[in-house]
C-alpha cells in the first residue's frame, strides 16, 4: 500500500517536472523556430545554441518587481494566474506517456490514472482554464484587459463546441473514452486514426489553436489592438504563470492530438516515451509554423468562422462518421 502511494507520488513529480521543463523549452523552440522562419537566428547567447535561454528568462522574471495596480480586485487578481495554470497541468493526469514497464521489480503503468472517461476528464478540466483569462481581464481594472477577457470568453465558448465535436468521430471509431484503450487500438502505423479521420483532425487542430488562443486566433492578446490583452497589468512571476499555463495548454492539446490521432506512444525501435515526445514536438512545430505563416484574423471573421464554418463542418463530420460506423 505504502509502496503504491510512493510510486504514484514519484510519477506525479516526474510528470509535473517534465511538463514544466517542456513548457520552458517550448518557449525556446518557439523563439528558435520562429527566428529561422523569419530569417533570423533566434536566441543564441545564453549557453550553447542559446539552450540556457529559458533558464535566464525564468530567473529574470522571478527577480522582477511584482506590480499590483491600485484599482484591481486584489483576491481575484492573485487567483487568476493560478486558475489559468492549474487546469492545464491537470489534463496530463490521464495522458498515456508510455507503455507499462518494469523498474526495480515494480510494475509501472505509463500514465498517472487510467480513467474510463479519460477524454471527457481532459475536456472538463480544460474548459475550466478560461476562468483564469476571464478573471484576469475582469479584475485588472483596465480597459485593455477587460476587452481581452471578453474576447477570450466569447472565443473559447464558440470554439469549444467545434473542439468537442471534432473528437466525436474518433470516439465513434474507437468505441471507447479511455485514453489507454485509444492508444491500444492504434498499434502499427496503418491503424492510426488519422487515416480514418483526416477531416476530423483538421477540425481538431483548428479548434484547438483557437482554444489555446494561439496565432492566428490570438485575439484575446492581440498586441496591435489591446496592448497585451488580459495580462496587460500583470508582471513578474504572475505574468509568467499565464505564459506557462498557455504553453502547458499547448502541450496538453498536442499530447491529446497525438493520443487521439497519431497512435500515442506506439512506434517501432525507439522506446515508447521517446516516440510520444517526438510526436508532441512535431505537433508543437506545426503550432509555431502556423504562427509564422498566417496573419491574425479580425474578430468578426473569427466568430463567423467558428459558428458558420467550423461548427457545421464538425457536425457533418460527426454524421458521416456515424453513418460509416453503422455500415
Amino acid at each position: 500500500m505504502l509502496e503504491m502511494v510512493l510510486i504514484t507520488l514519484i510519477k506525479v513529480l516526474v510528470v509535473v517536472v517534465a511538463v514544466l521543463t517542456g513548457c520552458a523549452y517550448s518557449t525556446y523552440m518557439e523563439r528558435k523556430v520562429l527566428g529561422r522562419l523569419q530569417n533570423r537566428i533566434g536566441p543564441s547567447y545564453a549557453g550553447p545554441f542559446g539552450l540556457l535561454q529559458p533558464l535566464a528568462d525564468g530567473l529574470k522574471l522571478i527577480f522582477k518587481e511584482d506590480i499590483v495596480p491600485s484599482n484591481v480586485e486584489r483576491i481575484t487578481f492573485a487567483l487568476a494566474p493560478m486558475i489559468a495554470f492549474i487546469p492545464a497541468l491537470l489534463s496530463f493526469a490521464v495522458i498515456p506517456f508510455s507503455s507499462d514497464f518494469e523498474l526495480f521489480g515494480y510494475h509501472i503503468t505509463g500514465m498517472l490514472s487510467d480513467l474510463n472517461i479519460g477524454i471527457l476528464f481532459i475536456f472538463a478540466v480544460t474548459s475550466l482554464g478560461v476562468y483564469g483569462i476571464v478573471l484576469a481581464g475582469w479584475s485588472s481594472g483596465s480597459k485593455y484587459s477587460l476587452l481581452g477577457g471578453l474576447r477570450a470568453t466569447a472565443q473559447m465558448i464558440s470554439y469549444e463546441v467545434a473542439y468537442g465535436l471534432s473528437i466525436i468521430g474518433v470516439i465513434l471509431i474507437a468505441n471507447t473514452l479511455s485514453m489507454r484503450e485509444l492508444v491500444a487500438i492504434q498499434e502499427g502505423i496503418t491503424n492510426w486514426i488519422i487515416w480514418k479521420q483526416p477531416f476530423g483532425f483538421l477540425l481538431y487542430i483548428t479548434a484547438a489553436i483557437a482554444e489555446t488562443n494561439r496565432a492566428p486566433f490570438d485575439l484575446p492578446e492581440a498586441e496591435s489592438e489591446l496592448v497585451a490583452g488580459y495580462h496587460t497589468e500583470y508582471s513578474s512571476m504572475r505574468f509568467s504563470m499565464f505564459f506557462i499555463g498557455e504553453y502547458a495548454n499547448m502541450l496538453a492539446v498536442a499530447s491529446v492530438g497525438t493520443t487521439l490521432f497519431f497512435g500515442g506512444w506506439n512506434g517501432p525501435f525507439l522506446p515508447p516515451v521517446l516516440w510520444f515526445v517526438i510526436k508532441v514536438v512535431a505537433f508543437m512545430f506545426c503550432y509555431i509554423w502556423l504562427r509564422a505563416t498566417f496573419p491574425r484574423l479580425r474578430y468578426d471573421q473569427l466568430m463567423n468562422f467558428g459558428w458558420k464554418v467550423l461548427f457545421p463542418l464538425a457536425l457533418l463530420n460527426t454524421m458521416v462518421t456515424a453513418a460509416w460506423v453503422m455500415l
Binding site: L120, F123, A124, V125, S127, L128, V130, Y131, V134, L135, W138, L150, T153, A154, M156, I157, E160, G164
Partner: peptide
C-alpha cells in the same frame, strides 16, 4: 463540470 462550470457559468461571467 463540462456543461455547467465550463460553459453556462462562463456565460454568466461574460
Amino acid at each position: 463540470i463540462i456543461v455547467y462550470a465550463g460553459a453556462i457559468l462562463v456565460l454568466f461571467v461574460f
